[in-house]
Simulated assay, not measured.
Amino acid sequence: MRELLEQFESDPDPLNLLPEAQLLRALMLDYINRFEEQDRMLTRWNLSFEKAFQSDWNEWWRTVRADALEREDDLSAELLERMPDPMTYLPSKPLRMADITDAARLIKEVGAMVDRIRKGQQESTFSMDTITRLWAVMGGHLTDAAMEVIENDDIRSALLTAVESRWGTISLAELASRRAEAGAEAG
């Protein structure tokens, strides 16, 4: 357990739950794909205890036993050695019957995991729409502030043009990679 905890502690992106969501999806699909097979196995196992099967098996046993007892030579050991084990003909019983509601529970878990991933992403990132609205609001506030403080129209226009030009050179991808590097250095 300690090794697993250390592994998780050294995870560079501990809030990335995508591998867990993928595991849940794989478990869910595997469960659904094996459901019919497990159902058939349990049905066959239960049917093996039907009276008709028991009767047929008992008749076979009596015949084999009678044949072995009728022999006067020393073949009885050979007959018993060659006698098939009737239990090998029975299907093995599954440990438990698959419950289709388990698949629904797994689907619910996948959905909850995806919701947790999205929530974590929303708390730590902004959508492009949010950033665009932020820039529009900031631009509006900057223009209003420039109108209030700078009386000279030429100076105010030059300042707003320079700000707009510089804002156009901002690279979100570069800022995001710097943030990731800073987080890695701090962590």
Rank of each mutant, 00 (worst) to 15 (best):
M1R: 04
E3M: 07
L5W: 13
Q7F: 13
Q7N: 13
D11Y: 01
N16M: 05
L18N: 07
P19H: 03
E20Y: 13
E20L: 15
R25Y: 08
A26F: 07
D30R: 04
E37S: 08
E37Q: 11
E37R: 07
Q38E: 15
R40D: 15
M41A: 15
S48M: 06
F49E: 07
K51D: 11
Q54V: 09
Q54D: 13
S55V: 14
W57S: 05
W57V: 05
E59M: 12
E59V: 04
R62L: 06
T63C: 08
T63H: 05
R65G: 00
D67E: 09
E70C: 04
L75G: 10
E78S: 14
L80S: 08
R82I: 07
R82S: 12
D85M: 14
D85W: 08
M87E: 15
T88K: 12
Y89Q: 11
Y89N: 06
L90Q: 15
P91R: 09
M97H: 07
A98Y: 07
D99C: 13
T101C: 08
I107K: 15
K108M: 09
E109Y: 08
V110S: 00
V110P: 00
V114M: 12
D115Y: 05
K119W: 10
G120L: 02
T125H: 12
I131Y: 02
M138N: 07
G139Q: 11
G140E: 12
M147Q: 09
E148I: 02
E151K: 15
E151R: 13
N152R: 15
N152P: 01
A158R: 12
A158T: 09
L159F: 08
L160D: 02
T161P: 00
T161E: 14
T169I: 04
I170W: 03
S171P: 04
A180R: 15
A182W: 01
A182V: 00
A182H: 03
A184E: 03
A186E: 11
